[in-house]
Amino acid sequence: MADAILEVFRGDRQGGKTEQYRVPVAPGMVVLDAIHYIQGHLAPDLAVRWNCKAAKCGSCSAEVNGRPRLMCKTRMDALPLDQPIKVFPMKSFPILKDLVTDVSWNYKINKKIPPFTPRPGTDWKVYQDDVDRVQEFRKCIECFLCQDVCHVLRDHDKFEQFAGPRFFVRVAGLEMHPVDGKSRAKLLRDELGIGFCNITKCCTEVCPEEIHITDNAIIPLKERVVDQFYDPVLMLVRKIRGVNEDSK
């Protein structure tokens, strides 16, 4: 089969440039295979994160021809080979080296989210109908491609005020957990900045697990925030009943 040219970003915090590598294409080859070929034969110090090579761990996130992708899931035969294939690190995160970025910010945000808190006295009888919805969110492999593509982070750098789609998915998984008894609506509005999301759906477009991030996680959470903070009738009802805002 024909060769492909990969144009890979090489550099670190100080800056960098792209370098071209010629790679023989085999049937069914993915971009990560090509990167491994480069490591094995042309540039042993080319830095890349990867683990499972089966789209289960979410390590090999990068931007292939400008699109945030998992390299292990991006088939070479789906890319035009007449031009070099551009492989760049995720743009939204600070670069460490070559294709590896510093994603530690995500782990810091994650710590802000109160953990699963079972309702007191639950009998742990849980039915599939109640679980289906949450299981979709639990498919997340933390590839952070949604964080990378989200313009609130990518273009507006709201790293201080905004948690990003990944963590709305996590919060959705907790909020809609049939046994969880805690409300995170205030956190969503005040600390995770759900209001910054303008539901333009790029997170959903790039999700390799095909989680309907916008429709099933973010919008339902926005509606829950509305229940708590913007719906005058519901707010009045709660006031009359004297309901505590931390419980569901």
Binding site: F116, P118, W124, K125, Q128, V131, V134, Q135, H177, D180
Partner: peptide
């Protein structure tokens, strides 16, 4: 397994909620 469930894991369920 029960520990995992109490820490938030959501396994597939039987029709009687187990």
């Amino acid at each position: 397994i029960r520990d995992l469930e109490q820490w938030g894991a959501l396994f597939d369920r039987t029709s009687d909620g187990q």
